[in-house]
């Protein structure tokens, strides 16, 4: 990592008595697609708005591209934001919306027209420049919002729940498109999302936030396979959290466990009864009540084209996992 594009130091913001962001330190490298992931009210949007300049932090500093931007108003920051509601100007057409930021910079008329046309083709909206936002579909509006932020060529693009308003099918396609766009343009994206699937599949690195603090930062596989705390293990994906001692737990992912009718030859085994089955097509999720123990979740792929799941409710089954299958936690 060379000089980070964003460095956040000890950032705190309170709304009344409630701390929305409580002492966040964070570095985001150039060219990263960084995701801030957390449930509602975890402070991720407030953190994003402090980077954009819409909220003033109570304490701490925001350094963008080596310059302290803590007290700088939004219109003087080298940062652009894509709003969750898109915030398209209803009284301007698509081209007018996109040109808005360039006009504020005093870019020449001919260059504005050229750059608007370029960015419209980049987001595959060629020829729609004269439409009003009200005449566009949800997916098209999302692209206009993206184009309007991209046309300014910001050092840093902030995206507040960029895909939340799209329907499921469109969301999956748009996800890949946005990643491709980010890689092609070599920009730094910071995405705020509550959708862990979205964060995991798009981000090069992500931070999980909880109650105004960052619980863990790292690449997606690290957060999934090596969670630092029970909160992260539980928040990202599904985990069986088994207490193995005083302040010692084992986080075990359902797919790391083998499920058999006969006793398996793994380092650790347990036996119990299937009490619930969730058939999801490609795989089934079993809830197994361990004898004198907790209820554990086990995932098994439905490899054979059988009738539903391989085991039935009430079956006695064996669970097995290896020594390094789970993550040992102490918080």
């Amino acid at each position: 990592m060379s000089e980070p594009i964003v460095r956040i130091e000890g950032l705190t913001k309170r709304f009344g008595e409630v701390p929305a962001v409580a002492g966040v330190d964070l570095e985001i490298a150039r060219g990263e697609l960084f995701a801030l992931l957390g449930g509602s009210g975890c402070g991720k949007t407030t953190l994003l708005r402090m980077i954009a300049g819409f909220e003033t932090p109570d304490t701490g500093r925001v350094i963008i591209d080596g310059q302290d931007m803590t007290g700088v108003p939004p219109h003087k920051r080298p940062v652009n934001m894509m709003f969750q509601s898109y915030a398209l100007f209803p009284h301007l057409d698509v081209a007018g919306n996109i040109a808005y930021g360039l006009k504020r910079e005093g870019v020449a008329r001919a260059e504005i027209a050229q750059r608007v046309a370029e960015v419209l083709s980049l987001v595959k909206l060629d020829g729609l420049g004269s439409r009003r936002p009200a005449q566009l579909s949800g997916g098209q509006r999302q692209r206009v919002a993206l184009a309007r932020a991209l046309v300014k060529r910001p050092k840093l693009l902030l995206l507040d729940e960029p895909l939340a308003a799209l329907d499921r099918k469109l969301r999956e396609g748009t996800r890949f498109e946005m990643v491709r766009l980010q890689e092609r343009l070599g920009l730094t994206f910071v995405i705020v999302t509550h959708d862990q699937e979205e964060a995991m599949s798009m981000a090069t690195r992500l931070a999980v936030m909880n109650a105004g603090r960052i619980a863990q930062t790292g690449p997606p596989h690290e957060l999934y396979e090596r969670p630092a705390s029970r909160f992260v293990a539980d928040f990202i994906g599904i985990a069986n959290i088994l207490q193995t001692g005083a302040r010692r737990w084992l986080a075990l992912r359902p797919e790391k466990i083998v499920l058999t009718s006969a006793r398996p030859a793994t380092a650790h085994v347990a036996t119990g009864q299937v009490i619930d089955i969730a058939y999801e097509g490609d795989r089934s999720l079993y809830r197994v009540a361990i004898e004198n123990g907790p209820v554990m979740l086990v995932a098994a792929m439905n490899v054979a084209r059988a009738h539903g799941s391989a085991h039935r409710r009430g079956d006695t089954v064996w669970l097995g996992w290896s020594d390094d299958a789970g993550q040992v936690l102490d918080e």
Binding site: P74, H75, M81, F83, S85, A87, F89, R104, E105, R148
Partner: peptide, 18 residues
């Protein structure tokens, strides 16, 4: 009035008066 519209304008480089 949707205030994010004004925030968007400022984010795009407009002063409060603009």
């Amino acid at each position: 009035f949707d205030r994010t519209l004004e925030e968007a304008a400022m984010d795009l480089g407009a002063t409060p008066w603009t």
